[in-house]
């Protein structure tokens, strides 16, 4: 029992530190709502230690689903939809950043669709997000951040751009 408590405490601490490492540096728009990476319990726990066999033996048993469910249970801070976007950005943040750099791409379209940003406003949102990413990568220490850190920042950048460009 004692071992279990210690292990649990260690996991919570580790998750807290890994999340905190980018939480402060994210360019979160006031009023944009919670960032699921920092506020909905999506942290290192969503990066499962993939076993060499598990990665490609085609076994994907509820990756992320548990987190979506548990996050949905906290209606004050998170919605299932936001967590869904977070999972998408977690898995594809590199392609998203590269498409932002090129100014177009299917991951980018999908992400903006998830933020309810329609075709009419998409280009403006991309321009805004492109500028936001340009500022983020130019910050000292950006390259040293974790993948989760990059994903969390990108979430903020795209959400903020969508809020600016696509608000109804």
């Amino acid at each position: 029992m004692r071992k279990f408590v210690l292990n649990t405490a260690a996991i919570i601490l580790a998750s807290t530190f890994s999340v905190a490492s980018f939480a402060d540096s994210g360019s979160k728009e006031p009023g944009s709502g919670p960032n699921p990476f920092t506020d909905c319990g999506i942290g290192a726990a969503l990066f499962p230690n993939t076993h060499w066999a598990a990665v490609s033996s085609n076994v994907i048993w509820d990756v992320g689903i548990t987190a979506v469910t548990s996050a949905t249970l906290s209606p004050q801070t998170c919605s299932g939809k936001k967590v869904k976007v977070a999972l998408f950005i977690r898995d594809t943040h590199e392609q998203l950043a590269e498409e932002l750099a090129r100014g177009e791409g299917k991951h980018l379209t999908a992400a903006l669709d998830m933020f309810q940003c329609g075709a009419g406003q998409r280009q403006q949102a991309i321009t805004t997000a492109r500028s936001g990413l340009g500022q983020a990568v130019a910050m000292p220490g950006y390259a040293e951040q974790s993948q989760l850190g990059h994903a969390g920042q990108l979430y903020n950048i795209i959400e903020s751009a969508a809020n600016h460009a696509c608000a109804v």
């Binding site: 590269e98 750099a101 100014g103 991309i126 130019a138």
Partner: peptide
């Protein structure tokens, strides 16, 4: 490279 690309105009 990503930074350099962001400094160029968009376009594929």
């Amino acid at each position: 490279a990503l930074t350099a690309r962001l400094m160029l105009p968009p376009g594929t």
